[in-house]
Nucleic acid binder design. Sequence first.
RNA 1: GGGCCCGUAGCUUAGCCCGGCAGAGCGCCCGGCUGAUAACCGGGAGGCCGGGGGUUCAAAUCCCCCCGGGCCCA
Length: 1033
Amino acid sequence: MKLGPRYDPLKVEEEVMKFWLENDIYKKVKELNKKRGKVKLFRFLEGPPTTNGFMHVGHMRGRTYKDVTLRFWRMRGYWVWDQAGWDTQGLPVELEVEKKLGFKSKKDILKYGVDKFVQECQKLVDFYLKRWEEDSKRMGLWLDYENAYQTRHPRYLDTAWSYLKKMFEDGRIYKGFRVVAVCPRCETALSSHEVAQGYKTVEDPSFYFKLPLKDEENVYLIAWTTTPWTIIANEAAAVHPNETYVKIRVNQNGKEEYWILAKKRLEPFAKEVNLEEYEIVEEFKGEELIGKEYIHPLLEEVPAHKEHRKPNHTVIEGAIIRRRILKGKEEEIVKEIFVSMESGTGIVHMAPAHGAEDFEACKEAGVQMFRPIRKDGHFTEEAGKYAGMWFKDAEKQVIKDLKAKGLAVHVGKIRHEYPHCWRCGTPLMYYADEQWFIKVEDLRERLVNENDKVIWHPKWAYDRMKDWLQNARDWTISRERFWGTPLPIWTCPKCGYRIAVGSLKELKEKALNPEKVIDHHRPWVDEVVIRCPKCGAEMKREPYVVDVWLDSGVAHTAALRQIGKEDLWNLLYPYDWITEALDQTRGWFYTLLVTGVTWHGRVPYKRVLTQGHVLDAKGEKMSKSKGNVVWAKDVFEKYGVDPVRFFLSIKSSPWDSVRFDPKDINRFKRTLDILWNSVKFAKSYMDLDKWNLEKLKEGFKYLEPEDSWVLAKTNEYIEKVTEALERSAIHHAALALNDFINEIISHKYIALVRPRVWEEEESPSKLAAYSTLFTVLDATIRMTAPFTPFLAEYLYQSFQRSLGFEEESVHMLLWPEENSLYDPEEAEVVDELLEAAERILALRTERKIKRRWPLPEAFIVIKDREEAAEKREKVIGKDENGNPIIVEEKVYKPLPSESVVKKAAKVLGIYANINEVKVVSEPPLGEYDIIETPRLKVYVKVKLDEETKALGLAKEVIRRVQVMRKEMDLPLDYVVNKVKIYTPSEELKRAIERHKNYIAREVRAKEIEVNEKPLEGKKWDVEGNELIIVIEK
RNA sequence: GGGCCCGUAGCUUAGCCCGGCAGAGCGCCCGGCUGAUAACCGGGAGGCCGGGGGUUCAAAUCCCCCCGGGCCCA
């Protein structure tokens, strides 16, 4: 691999990829690390991407963090367990297939045939999985793809089943009710994710109605609802126990009535329903209402209500009880009151079958649920008058009936957000449905305690997780879908006995029709029946699949079983490090923890890095519907993988959201360009001098101060990058690398060392420069390897490897170690001199003195002990008035020795372009600019004088000859016979004569000839004067 | 309604955990170098550190309140 004139990421990556594949580098690195890492193990488990679409830049960000981290630990000599995995089942896949086939509802699937549908799902997964693998490899993510787990794999499914069987046998799985959002048209429950996608602003009735109290004549509770059809299923009324309620007297069509509602709501209520005259007759706390019975407003229309007994049709407390775990053992009982004083009347009508809060509050109060409606949105016979009606139609009828009975107060309109089916647009119906659960609530304390063992990056992610765990709910695992892990529970229709099956093999043994046992998946598994061991009837499978989060949630065990490495489980569990986006707190991080604790009794991971999301250039969330998704492939095919990886690493902290603007990529690519050029610079001179690794050691004998300085800086930056990567602060590591390459290597060191490598003969100074350059660049290339693996490989092959390194690949090297062959005192002095030099450069610009024109001299004085002391204020106590007593404290620093400063002085000369820099004990006389650094004072006249100008002009001439040499394509070390010069300017002539030898040396000419007559040659302009130059080879 | 995150130059951001001169990059302006050269380098202008209050000798940083944006939960 050759260093071309310019860093071309796409070319580099193509070549490196070829090299990796042809030489099987990944496998070799893996083997090497396995050998090296006998005891040092770094265990990683991938949170599986769902294979239902392409990789976008958000995925690429996470995958970059994964790769950076794994490569870093590999280079530190660890045996890295790099488990890859794919999430291949679940609703997301089904939805993509439905889209592909143009389906509108679940019924379409049944019509099409579940078997064919499931096969389509398999095909879709095959397609996207391949793309993901390709893109992942292309972006340099080194994971073990050959042994990647797939949640649809038979052995993986066996593991999921065995987990479910264990949960069943532990009594942790139960069937119960939960209120879910249902699309009555598609006849299916929607996940919260789907619900969130379908909010629409719609106009609904704002309906106020009366609930007549049973024991008090003419007294009514005033309730409010926007879904009047739920009154059919009303079973209670909820109030806020601590708010004040009022009883008002109103006149309704000549009849006196008493209405009860919250005091705070009275005014807005009166305004909305145009109630002008009323009188408050009583005030009381909401809790006094609790227990009062009312007569169901649709008692005649829905006779079933006549059978409902107390506490049904009573006032209950509008609160949900939550138990939270505080600091280990303590349990706090929190009442979440949901009765709002922002809208309605402060009396909330409760239909336990149609609201999550209603369901919970009624359960707590012992109110029985009543659900006279089917999942398809039509009322059942139990609904009396409304039987057979579509729920939205029943709404109008209910209002009409209540009006007729004098129980309607007001029908208004309200515009609000209401969830609709994102697929077919039908308003959703909240509906209490039978579901399967895994019991989690009793484990909250355990979960919190296990979470305490985990190190979260950043720290606040721990609090977020803890908050989630303290409020953990029983896990609804059943889904009425097709492409997923079937729930392996068989129920006897006759006696209700149930069994759980833990593997396909076990099913075959138990099945009455073992020939039907072909696949774990639906529809085949649905055919399998088992003889009931209790009554002998045929048991049938519960027709659900399980939540897709359970699939990935058992990856800590299922992955190993799938790939036949179960024996490693003891070694690998718990995993050292996992990382996914922030939203996985309630997703994968959570389900891993729950399955880990319920199955193996402990948390399956030790460290978690939570990532922020990638937003578009405007800061908006990327979504397919908005069309602002940026696909990873498009980006890395355009800019190259390494620049994108570097950009993603450096742009922001992993846990913050990041705006993705492709324009930013080139900004950081510049650093990679500079690295490329720096290596090229070093390599071209080393080649010229036939330098190689054998001379490395010798060079360290002759180190000069700037060498010591850059070696010290290198150590400093190695430490910074290492420390940052250890705590997953990937952006800090990348920023440090960025600064190191730009400021230390390019801006400073190369500028300082350039004259030394330009020397012709092999000198100790040059040897030292090469040894230093090599060491510094070697460390840098190693440190970039995790971030930009292709570029690092390319540079390694063309630099370290070509100069004598034996390792086949940069990824087989170890992480750079700190070097201690330099002189730290010299390094410190150089640091101060560079600081002074930068200030002189600022003065030059300010006074318009070109950097090319050398200043004649500068003097350095080492400060004395007192002068160099740092003053610091310190509080030593308080006086009698309580005011602090502050003393000035002096911190004395060791002063640099004169010999060291003398040796280092040239750094100031080179960097600030000063001809002579002297170290003196007394300040020079005259007017000087004085520049102070902590321990030094520099005296320099930043002024243009004749001497300076003459040398400056000589340099102008040199520069132009150099340009011509290059135009003539002369080799770097070619010595020309003669350079002839003509100029009419006396000043320029004098300057050339005066610095003739200097010019000759710099341009590698045997002779410089100044002519009196104009020449036939290249004409130049120097500060307004004509200059003609001829080069004779 | 609750929990958490974010708010720093025109733009993108570091610094905040652990208080001590507010630091970069891009863009803009001025300049240098010309054998790292389709490169490289120097300088400058530009900041109520979202707002208010508190703690402190000292607050971008710690505490409280508010405003704006986001994520999650209800």
